[in-house]
């Protein structure tokens, strides 16, 4: 139990560092990376939280968060590349 609490504390320190990067991050890519890392850390915190509260069924939710995180990162990067979410086939041919 104490071990899981220590893990959660370490994860919160990491979240703090990521938030700092998100606030000051000079380029946009720093911020995209910070958001992606934040999502990963949320998944890890949820997993350790499941063991702290002695109900590891939180793990399914954590996995679904991981999937959402992946999809939204892809969407953000796609927005960077093509500036829009629709009409990608034409843009891809141009690029």
């Amino acid at each position: 139990m104490v071990m899981f609490l220590a893990i959660t504390a370490a994860l919160f320190v990491a979240v703090l560092l990521v938030l700092v990067r998100l606030f000051v991050g000079p380029t946009l890519y720093d911020r995209v990376l910070a958001v992606n890392t934040f999502g990963t850390l949320t998944v890890l915190i949820l997993s350790s939280l499941g063991f702290v509260t002695e109900r590891p069924d939180f793990l399914d939710i954590a996995m679904l968060y991981a999937l959402i995180n992946f999809v939204s990162t892809i969407a953000i990067l796609k927005f960077f590349r093509y500036r829009t979410f629709g009409r990608t086939t034409a843009s891809q041919e141009e690029a």
Binding site: G39, L64, V71, S72, A75, F85
Partner: peptide, 15 residues
């Protein structure tokens, strides 16, 4: 909240 707030809303705001 995670699906709508973090997923779809971010995409809509970027759009």
């Amino acid at each position: 909240e995670a699906a709508v707030g973090a997923g779809i809303s971010t995409v809509l705001m970027l759009g």
